[in-house]
Design a protein around this nucleic acid. Structure first.
Lengths: 252, 252
DNA sequence: ATAGTCCAGTCGTCCGTATGAGTGGAACAA
DNA sequence: TTGTTCCACTCATACGGACGACTGGACTAT
């Protein structure tokens, strides 16, 4: 390590380790040498080593566990979510989009739902085009694959559309909430999804069991009735290392 | 701070600061008390304070500059990219999707392009459905708004589609590369975009001037000819704090 | 007025040290 | 063989000190 280059020592160590990782010297899933060994080989203090490791951890390259070695993060397998999951044809065959996706991939999906009713806050009111304080139905879902939480979703609808339907039940039945809406005469006309990404809140970190340095992808979907009235908004939160979203459309 | 709660001190400090920030005690753009002041008010060492600040920095809540105070990150304004930017109608009026977007928002857009030719690597070959090593045209773009880099894009096409067209020039002319493809008889049939997010590489961090704790959104768009042949792939990288992607489609 | 220097305050880097806590295997006892 | 205990090794947390580098304003000299 070059002390006079102006580049901080821990950055030099970090980029050297980064190279060794991407080059495969330290393979994914394999462990790094212990801190004392790294101190010797780079000739710096433990603090500096830890600083370097921290950099790579927040970049998502390394994971460390107390009492064990530091490991190179194994590549997570990526699920692809296509928009075709929302077609009526797909809906007929399952109890919602998530279960179908997971089943297709050979996972054992499970999902716990909590339904509650509350007055609309400002954001919900503006998206659903209703007055602040209007009673809305909130469906709070935690989706799991093989026991691991993989997706959070909060769905909100004005309660006028859900009263006396299975949408207010934990199990919305075959085809999910959208099928129930259409049965009640509210034919879905179009969907809009807004996609972003950010670092998770501490809550999300623990719920999704995210390592440090893993962002979440946020999707807000709004379903509109054929006449343009917004019927439902759905805030989804997905771990970015396990999901990829796919959209396709024909040129016009 | 409670030493016996089992929760690490720096986490306690961090969540206290987090609350004060979200509650508005420390307003966006305002500065935090200096480290010595925080040491006094929490009764912990500088190391612990810095650890707490680091947590909030990697979450994107704080930014710090050498020699200056630590600041609460001011909210960035979000641009929305809609897929309608790719319609033929929009294409007729501008020199590509990005410039139109930016102009509409009152920004002064600029964009520098480098064109090069290289053999297709494995990924490009598999997406473009060509043999590894086939010569492809690579258009490397850096897009700026008011001088700030806001988007990176790398477009790849098999060279058989670009030879003797403006696509091999820096300025592809009105309507951009897609318009040139269609003029050459390759009518675009459909687009597919795969969207993900991850932490930026060091390169991207400096190019996009990303603060710590800001992920990037990655979009890989593939344009297909009407007969299903892939014509172009475009890898885009956007700072997650400044962009939101929007997709809409009608229910079927 | 202007330009330059100086300096106090701030964060960044780096060292050393100490203690605690989790892990996993070795040694031991039943 | 089986179950338990113990211990060495690991990383996490937390303290302390020291120096450097950067910023912005005050001050000085021109």
């Amino acid at each position: 390590m070059d002390k006079s280059s102006g580049v901080p020592l821990h950055r030099q160590v970090a980029s050297d380790l980064r190279e060794k990782i991407t080059a495969g010297t330290f393979a994914p899933g394999e462990q790094l040498p212990a801190e004392p060994a790294l101190m010797d080989s780079y000739g710096v203090s433990r603090h500096t080593i830890r600083e370097a490791i921290r950099l790579l951890r927040t970049d998502g390259l390394l994971v460390s566990e107390h009492g064990k070695d530091v490991f190179v993060r194994p590549p997570a397998q990526i699920q692809r979510l296509a928009r075709s999951r929302l077609s009526r044809a797909a809906r007929a065959e399952n109890r919602g989009a998530f279960l179908a996706d997971a089943a297709a991939k050979g996972f054992t999906p499970s999902s716990s739902v909590r339904v509650r009713f509350e007055p609309a806050d400002e954001r919900a009111a503006s998206i659903l085009d209703i007055d602040v304080g209007t009673e809305i139905t909130v469906r709070d879902r935690v989706m799991r694959a093989n026991g691991l939480v993989v997706q959070l979703a909060v769905s909100r609808l004005s309660r006028q559309y859900t009263r006396d339907t299975a949408i207010e039940q934990v199990d919305t039945g075959e085809g999910g909430a959208y099928a129930r809406l259409e049965e009640a005469g509210h034919l879905i006309g179009s969907y809009v999804e807004n996609v972003g990404a950010r670092m998770p809140t501490p809550d999300e970190t623990s719920q999704l069991e995210l390592g440090p340095g893993i962002p979440v992808v946020t999707v807000t979907r709004v379903a509109y009735r054929e006449d343009g009235t917004p019927l439902e908004m759905n805030d989804m939160t997905l771990p970015a290392n396990r999901y990829e979203l796919s959209y396709e459309w024909s040129a016009e």
